[in-house]
């Protein structure tokens, strides 16, 4: 399972960044695919990116919403918000665990042989604060004379933008180097700090800072793809907790298995020796008593794919 996930992560990162003509033609892809969002954090100013970053697109839409309304239009970001909601409603936070290039980078950084630490639990709320303040409130509320706001999260925080776009563009376009100032130094510092954080705390950025993870995670309890913890099967071996990259402890009731932190990597599902973790996929709610299609390790072994 883990090998499959790594292959899918690599394939998604390559597919999302498959414009390799930036050496010879335009330094950025300008095709129609940029009308779509990548289901993960992948800066659209990255020379190789072929789709838009959902977080950047959302901020841009909100930053120009007031101008749009004053101009008699209704371009308020419904399209990009709908795309994010569609991905979230089907898969919850699974794109974080399976598709996000920055998630893959964090997992590779975490391979450094250092004793891992747990994230201070209140920090898990920081990503919601980032979403509310840097992605929604500031772009919407602080506008210039023409009515345009800024993409605050991209500009002041996003380490993916620095790594995937800022640094490559500086290498590619020498003219830009003269424009580098304090802001870029700040973003470089933040990137290094986040990388150090990821060495000691697995998926540090996803768990503490990423507003896109906060958005997708909000759908975890109501998405088509859901996990179920069957407490009566649990043997308290802690295998799920040991393998969980975001330190969820659902076997003892401390966390919900569909917590907003869960990135749906399915390591707990693969590690559980007692079929206590099940995966469901369907449009109905498991609490509603409706039969849904799902997979349990035990039922899989018996050649059945339906959880009743």
């Amino acid at each position: 399972m883990e090998r499959l996930r790594r292959r899918i992560q690599i394939a998604a990162s390559i597919l999302g960044n498959s414009y390799w003509l930036f050496f010879w033609r335009s330094p950025i892809y300008q095709g129609a695919l940029k009308k779509l969002c990548f289901p993960g954090l992948n800066c659209y100013s990255c020379p190789a990116a072929v789709t838009s970053c959902p977080l950047g697109a959302l901020q841009n839409a909100l930053a120009s919403a007031r101008f749009s309304i004053s101009a008699g239009q209704v371009q308020v970001g419904l399209y990009v918000a709908g795309l994010i909601a569609l991905i979230g409603s089907v898969a919850g936070r699974a794109p974080c665990g399976w598709l996000c290039p920055f998630g893959l980078i964090q997992e590779l950084v975490a391979k450094l042989p250092v004793n891992k630490r747990e994230l201070w639990r209140p920090l898990r709320w920081l990503r919601f604060a980032m979403l509310a303040v840097m992605v929604v409130a500031l772009p919407l509320l602080i506008v210039d004379a023409a009515g345009y706001g800024q993409t605050w999260f991209c500009k002041f925080v996003c380490p993916a933008g620095t790594l995937e776009a800022g640094i490559p563009l500086l290498a590619l376009l020498p003219d830009l180097r003269g424009m580098v100032g304090l802001l870029f130094a700040w973003k470089l510092f933040l990137l290094v700090m986040i990388a150090v954080g990821c060495i000691f705390i697995t998926r540090f950025f996803c768990r503490a800072i990423c507003p896109l993870g906060a958005l997708f995670g909000s759908f975890n309890r109501v998405s088509w793809l859901r996990l179920e913890f069957k407490e009566r099967n649990c043997v308290r071996c802690r295998a799920c907790y040991t393998v969980c990259p975001v330190d969820l402890s659902f076997f003892d009731g401390r966390d919900d298995i569909n917590s907003t932190s869960c990135i749906r990597c399915l390591r707990c599902f693969a590690a559980c020796p007692a079929s206590a973790v099940c995966v469901h996929f369907g449009p109905g709610s498991p609490d509603g008593g409706e039969e849904i299609v799902g997979v349990c390790p035990a039922s899989k072994l018996k050649g059945r794919g339906v959880v009743r």
Partner: peptide, 20 residues
């Protein structure tokens, strides 16, 4: 809205990535 999103995404946003 897709056209608006496309117009923003096909230009390098310098301030977005911390340059300029």
């Amino acid at each position: 809205e897709p056209a608006v999103m496309w117009r923003k995404a096909v230009n390098i946003c310098l301030s977005c990535i911390g340059i300029g």
